[in-house]
């Protein structure tokens, strides 16, 4: 008798909890999805200059966002690169030309790096003129060879160089490695598909 009560109470609690949460998820999930779609859309228009609309294209397990101009011509392409940073998962949106030889722009979609140090890969409040100087280094950078980083030296974009952040070398390096890695994987996939 007592054990029956025990089983009923625990099972019922679990069932009620499951029911409440599934109803709640049914209500909030569309809002969350809509917000995330909005964020993604804004990010894509940020990294792909001159686009009018974009289409999504899945090639094998990679997802590409192909930017189109007003006439419906493909002009550029973006993809998400994901990997481990210093202490968190980094999600980076990379915008490129159609040959995938030049990075147009990048945007950090999510990161939880060390506040005040690693977070400079997204925003650097200590740089009062240009808080987003670090990701801007990737604008129009040559990506035909893997990107490398320099410490305390002036980088050369044509040589695929960027400057690492003082005090956050690992976060900077992680972003570069993640971009290099997914570029290596995605470039042949995309080129093959387009041609």
């Amino acid at each position: 008798m007592k054990s029956a009560k025990l089983i009923i109470v625990l099972t019922m609690t679990a069932i009620i909890s499951g029911a409440i949460l599934s109803v709640l998820a049914g209500y909030t999930q569309p809002i969350i999805d809509a917000y995330q779609a909005e964020v993604l859309k804004n990010a894509i228009s940020d990294v792909l200059p001159g686009l009018d609309t974009y289409i999504e294209k899945d090639i094998e397990d990679s997802k590409f966002y192909i930017g189109k101009d007003k006439n419906g011509e493909s002009i550029n392409v973006a993809f998400e690169a994901v990997g481990d940073g210093f202490q968190s998962k980094l999600k980076i949106l990379v915008g490129m030309d159609l040959k995938m030889k030049k990075i147009l722009s990048i945007k950090i979609l999510s990161q939880l790096e060390t506040p005040g140090l690693g977070t400079k890969i997204e925003i650097d409040p200590s740089n009062k003129q240009d808080a987003g100087w670090w990701p801007k280094q990737f604008v129009n950078i040559n990506a035909s060879s893997p990107i490398t980083y320099l410490i305390n030296e002036k980088p050369d974009k044509s040589k695929s160089q960027v400057m690492a952040i003082t005090g956050a070398t690992i976060s900077s390096k992680s972003v570069i490695n993640i971009i290099n890695k997914s570029l290596k994987k995605n470039r042949p996939l995309f080129i093959k598909e387009v041609n």
């Binding site: 625990l10 609690t13 679990a14 909890s17 409440i20 949460l21 709640l24 998820a25 909030t28 999930q29 969350i32």
Partner: peptide
């Protein structure tokens, strides 16, 4: 279970 339910509600609503 009760606590986890309310935490999930908080999490989803905040998101």
């Amino acid at each position: 279970i009760v606590i986890a339910t309310f935490v999930t509600i908080t999490d989803k609503s905040m998101a």
